[in-house]
């Protein structure tokens, strides 16, 4: 990618272009072993403490959508980035970039939602920053949150722990968040009856299972880029192949409906309250059952397995007995007629 080019929206969609941007423009300049891991959070040591540290920015439009809003998203998103590392989220920061002209009441609503979310997740917002920019320079409101959490003793998770024979679990239905946001945007004229964003803090769910089970190798939350992107990242980084079965992947009917209408593939849609886990074969079924006992895991399913053949490949077995490769998308999906 040459430096004369412009950044396009697709660079932010979490797929291949995002990764290329990060590796070409960012990784090289900031090279250090912690960053190179490119995990959901950075694992650092401060004195004798093993800490996770993460940051994320939230630019969702519209600000409010079924089941959630930018504030809740900003808190839970960061909490989840810590939780999937196995860390116990403790403190978050919040930086607001507010567009001149934003209604005060809108800001209050967002902040109330954030405060609520902190309570639910059990984290404290301990520091922050507020900036106001000229009208047109930010789309109403941008929020950045950073967070720190503590890694438990004696538990190691990492993409390098994944081996052939492991199985893949998703904690629930995919695509809910992306579709809830899409439907709220009005311009496509699609109305939902029940569907809401799945935006939720995963720390308690994850804590329950990591303390109960040994054999959880790796976890990641399938946010932008969706489940497919996480599976591709696993295949590529761990040097394994992943096989999943279409019929096992839980999808809500409204998500299926909208995907059929617009020509979207739910595998690439963002989720904000789900976790992908790669676990030892021996515990997979029991762990999945344990997830299903919890509110946030009621639709959990074992969707596939890891193998050593054809490393880097992700194969989906279709419901009619065929198969196809799953690859990373270049950008966001667009509604199509063909």
């Amino acid at each position: 990618m040459n430096n004369d080019e412009k950044i396009i929206l697709a660079h932010g969609s979490g797929g291949k272009l995002t990764r290329d941007l990060i590796s070409a423009s960012l990784l090289k300049k900031f090279s250090n072993p912690v960053l190179a891991e490119l995990d959901d959070s950075a694992r650092v040591e401060v004195g004798s403490n093993r800490i996770c540290f993460t940051t994320d920015s939230y630019v969702v439009k519209p600000l409010f959508f079924p089941g959630s809003d930018i504030g809740k998203l900003a808190v839970y998103g960061t909490v989840n980035d810590l939780a999937v590392m196995g860390a116990d989220p403790l403190y978050i920061s919040c930086a607001l970039i507010i567009e001149e002209g934003l209604e005060r009441s809108v800001l209050e609503r967002v902040v109330d939602s954030m405060a609520d979310a902190c309570q639910v997740a059990g984290v404290s917002l301990v520091t922050g920053d507020t900036k106001v920019v000229e009208s047109g320079s930010a789309d109403q409101l941008f929020i950045n949150t950073s967070g720190v959490g503590v890694l438990p003793e004696g538990k190691e998770f990492g993409i390098d722990k994944i081996t052939a024979g492991d199985r893949v679990i998703i904690s629930g239905t995919i695509g809910d968040h992306a579709i809830a946001v899409l439907a709220a945007r009005q311009d496509l004229g699609l109305k939902l009856s029940e569907l809401e964003s799945d935006c939720a803090p995963l720390n308690r769910l994850i804590k329950t299972v990591i303390h109960r089970f040994d054999g959880i190798k790796f976890m990641r939350d399938p946010t932008r880029g969706g489940l497919a992107t996480v599976l591709c990242e696993i295949a590529e980084t761990a040097g394994v192949s992943v096989q999943v079965r279409d019929e096992m992947i839980p999808v809500r009917r409204e998500v299926s409906g909208i995907c059929e209408i617009l020509g979207f593939d739910p595998l690439y849609l963002a989720n904000e309250g789900k976790v992908v886990m790669v676990v030892d074969d021996a515990i997979a079924d029991e762990l999945c059952d344990a997830l299903r006992e919890e509110d946030l895991g009621e639709d959990a399913a074992v969707i596939g397995e890891i193998s050593g053949e054809n490393p880097g490949e992700v194969v989906l077995r279709t419901a009619v007995g065929g198969s196809r490769l799953i690859t990373m998308l270049a950008g966001d999906q667009l509604p199509r007629i063909c």
């Binding site: 009856s193 009917r253 409204e254 299926s256 209408i261």
Partner: peptide
Amino acid sequence: ELEGVTRE
């Protein structure tokens, strides 16, 4: 309507 989704 399709699967609970409606559109004009």
